[in-house]
Design a binder for these strands. Sequence first.
DNA 1: GTTCGTTGCCTTTTT
DNA 2: GGCAACGAAC
Length: 677
Amino acid sequence: MARIYNLNSVGGEGGSPAIDFDAELNPQQLAAVKAPPGPALVIAGAGSGKTRTLTYRVAYLLQNGIQAQNILLLTFTNKAAREMIERVAALVPVDTSTLWSGTFHSIGNRILRRHADRLGMARQFSIMDREDQKELMNSVVKDSGLDVKALKFPKAQLLSDMFSMARNTGVNLRDYIADNYSYFEQFSDEIVKMRDAYQDKKLTTNCMDFDDLLIKTLSLLREHDDLRDLYQHQFEFVLVDEYQDTNMIQSDMIDLLAGKHGNLMVVGDDAQSIYSWRGADFRNILNFPEQYPGTNVYKIETNYRSVPEILTLANSAIRSNTEQFSKELAPFRSDQETLPALVMLSNTNTQAAFVVQRIQELQEEGVEPQEIAVLYRAHYQAMEVQMELTRQGVDFNITSGLRFFEQAHVKDVATFMKFVANRADEVAFKRMVRMLPGIGDKSADKLWMQWLSCEGSQKEKSDGFSKYMLDFVVPPKGKKDWMQLAYTLDELIDVDGELQPPSMMITSIVEGMYADYMRAQFSNYENRKMDIEQLDNFSSGFENVEEFLTQLSLLAGTDTDIKGGRQKKEQDSNVVCLSSVHQAKGLEWKVVFVIWMAEGMFPNGRVLEEDLDDSGLEEERRLFYVAVTRAMDELYLTYPLIWQNAHSGQVLQQPSRFLDEIPSEQMEEWQVGSGWD
DNA sequence: GTTCGTTGCCTTTTT
DNA sequence: GGCAACGAAC
């Protein structure tokens, strides 16, 4: 170990005020915060101050003379990283901006952009989201000439999911197909060919998908000794949040980055592992002590969040799971008079009516709106509650399935910028030209071919677009708009061929083309226009387009991330929250409603169908555990008896098996009278 | 030959 | 509300 690390001298030097760790942390947290160098595993139950522990750990390191740039803090969302750093900055008077923190993907991106030359890639690679990936995959399948319809060949989305899962778990693609998609095994050869073609196409179009950001970082560091030394030397302390949700690639990345100093602290809760469907393996956390001999294990089993009644229920909820560190959370708070409520409603509308009426009553009792959340397994289950809230005039904030950036109009505007920044971006080009009238799939293909065969498409070119594009053969109906497009693109670069700053680009795009398109295309033109203005605001913080586009793709992307003007943020934070359980991870509210507690909904029916070893069921159970442990004071579990389904009519619902697993004396059954109908 | 609106079917979770 | 398949219109 290169650095002298003094465990006992805390702060005080150079006039910086000391943090009184002993007063601000409980003994369990304190032990973890003051952990000696070397590997450390912090098993922290729900509501036990995981974030607090990590935050103080970073502050502690900084106070002990560790330089900010020598600390790497890995999280699963940008929001988590940001909030932690803000709190650290409030604790220690040290410049925290040089600290390396963020999601695995953003750290990977940062390293890759620095050394893109080593990969033989242009630095301006585009980052593809799920939709872009699917588009690219579609064009790969089409190029292959395979008669996919006749063969019943897997669809583009499924192909990308298969490739991603195989990569993230380190499994050979053929084996993966055999094990999980035996009915596609006959296509193994074609699927492998498709995978290779997809990889090639990403190279020629200068694009990376999310997985590439991790995998290419890993191979970059594995293949280049000097770079590996550089980062391994730099990161004296590596801290990882939500370690139970890491997959193989991510844990490899951690192992490599912490490889020299070995000062690796991982924090997590095996009972809250809910991402196995994207390759996360909670055995990473179970096996950590074996993988790192000499690991100090810290268990934080006191729950500071919830009242004992809720905690008792949570402990019951998770008890049926077999694979976990045994741990029983002990409450810190004292008993209340009330039990969590179990509420059966006659149908989905009465369920919504109940939730909303109860929310209104709570507000009358003095509960602030932002202290209330409605959680559900899948986004579509929020629909009735959403409508009822609107009817009753209750403001709410919803973490929708679509993030801000994924909304069509926001992506449309960004597409112009993507193409100008990366002239090889086929997906961006085609999306862009398809906005023009009379141009569909076929014409977009032809135009792309023309673009490829003209000089303007060469990567290093930086001259205007119209000088090439005006000569293209274009369907008559789109002729006028095509010219307009060419001139608009010209405006996105200056006389020297340099890219304009993002904000100027957005103005040119909207004024040149997109405002007209939006007006013709969307009924809610005004709303969308405002979104674009928000995008413009957000972009003004960036000087170069590449940085701006990267942030857009990598942002966790809840509305507040981008619509982050101060006013908007305050407004948003003062309303009821609707969220999927996944997106609620790490958050807490005084009052939580978990709706749709019906068999087939939660646990999800599709998971159960293909669940041979109960691992799927166990993950659903952990998800339920995450849901109930979000609540501090009051918890409502509701389910509708009848689901009015648009297609199959009225479907009778069974209460979720998770409800059966909770002893009845731990809940109070509410009888909701006919007044609700 | 291509675009584009209509109809019918089904709805997991996300960096 | 999204996606694929179908068929009318250009």
